[in-house]
Design a protein around this nucleic acid. Structure first.
Lengths: 206, 206
DNA sequence: TAAGAAAACGACACTAATGTCATTTTTAAT
DNA sequence: ATTAAAAATGACATTAGTGTCGTTTTCTTA
């Protein structure tokens, strides 16, 4: 009597839209992407898209929210055991499993910066941006504090400032990378240098 | 027989428009500012504004071009004499005359970032952005090279990468500052730490 | 295979901004 | 004062995008 379309199909469609959205956002950036771009890329009608997302902002939020989920991690202590040292935990959390700097950059990063910077006068977006910054900061500073407690780090400078500085430097590289290319900004080598001076700043193993 | 309006008056009007433009760009950011905002702030009609600037992009370009002029400086050698050391030249070029870090940030900086990042798919804007980056880079790396030649610096890391890194870190702080506030990101202390690790990285006076 | 609920469609009305242009006003030289 | 060149005005046509809504299609259950 009450036949709904299956939940899986809805999720499938939704994730298909998100996939298309990610593609066009990467190509055109946030501001220059229109709902029409997304519709066309996804092969879906106007109404079909609006069924799932109220507007472009809602769509983009959904996109970056999905990723925030993935970053949720286990406890620092646990990671310490896996990685061998707090320094390695720090390396891993910024460089990934390999702990190696590369020239790669999240293709959506420029659009994210764009989204937050153009929305800096919008209270709710600002709040969201603050949350993301503080989340990254908190994770970093927690690792550092643990490292200090364990006697692994002897910081030459306030850990809070070093943590914020790592984030700002990375944001800056993302920013510059959006406009220039990774060879010009020497993303890989900058990242190595970043890790080098942080190691010094934290007095790792001294 | 041929009465033109005086050149001074035109320049006066133009600079008045630029002043108004700067104000509204600072308030609303680049994307969210409309020509109407500028007209109203300047107390000028639509046609009056378009007489001087073809469109928003042209207007903004004029605004940031004016500033680029001011940065034109004397030779590095000369500054060395004034400042006492190449390290002080470097400090001065990033922190200004006082050579002290502060919590202040150019109010137009967020709009500039916005302008370049939203225009990253536009070849001419991209070119402009590249030019600005390379100009800042060149100045920095030149100072460092001079310092090395003079035996004042013994870098622990490639000077080119350190130079780019300073720029990226500063861009990142501008970025984060656009969204958060200078207390949260601890602009002053981050800047002090930035100068601290660069000093170490360059091996100043070792 | 019939029914009806929800999904998908796409035409449409609306909005907000742009850049133009015929007209009016101002200006400085005569 | 007069004049003509240029500046300034503001109404207007145009454009590009948004979000809605009545209609059609699709799917599941009975």
């Amino acid at each position: 009597m009450s036949p709904k379309v299956s939940q899986e199909h809805k999720e499938q469609r939704r994730s298909n839209l998100l996939k298309a959205a990610r593609e066009v956002f990467c190509e055109h950036g946030y501001e220059n992407t229109t709902m029409k771009h997304v519709m066309e890329r996804a092969g879906v009608s106007r109404g079909g898209l609006y069924q799932y997302f109220e507007n472009k902002e809602d769509l983009f939020e959904a996109l970056i929210e999905d990723e925030l989920m993935e970053v949720v991690e286990g406890s620092i202590q646990e990671m310490r055991k896996q990685q061998g040292s707090y320094w390695d935990v720090l390396l891993m959390s910024f460089l990934g499993e390999s702990k190696e700097a590369t020239n790669d950059m999240d293709a959506l990063a420029p659009s994210k910066l764009e989204y937050f910077i153009t929305g800096r006068n919008d209270e709710s977006r600002k709040e969201h941006a603050r949350k993301r910054f503080l989340q990254a900061y908190q994770m970093t500073v927690d690792i550092i504090h643990e490292g200090v407690k364990a006697g692994e780090f002897s910081p030459r400078f306030k850990p809070e400032v070093i943590a914020k500085s790592i984030i700002s430097h990375i944001d800056g590289m993302a920013m510059d990378h959006a406009i220039l290319d990774s060879e010009t900004i020497q993303l890989k080598e900058q990242t190595e240098w970043l890790m080098g001076y942080v190691k010094w700043g934290l007095g790792v193993g001294e």
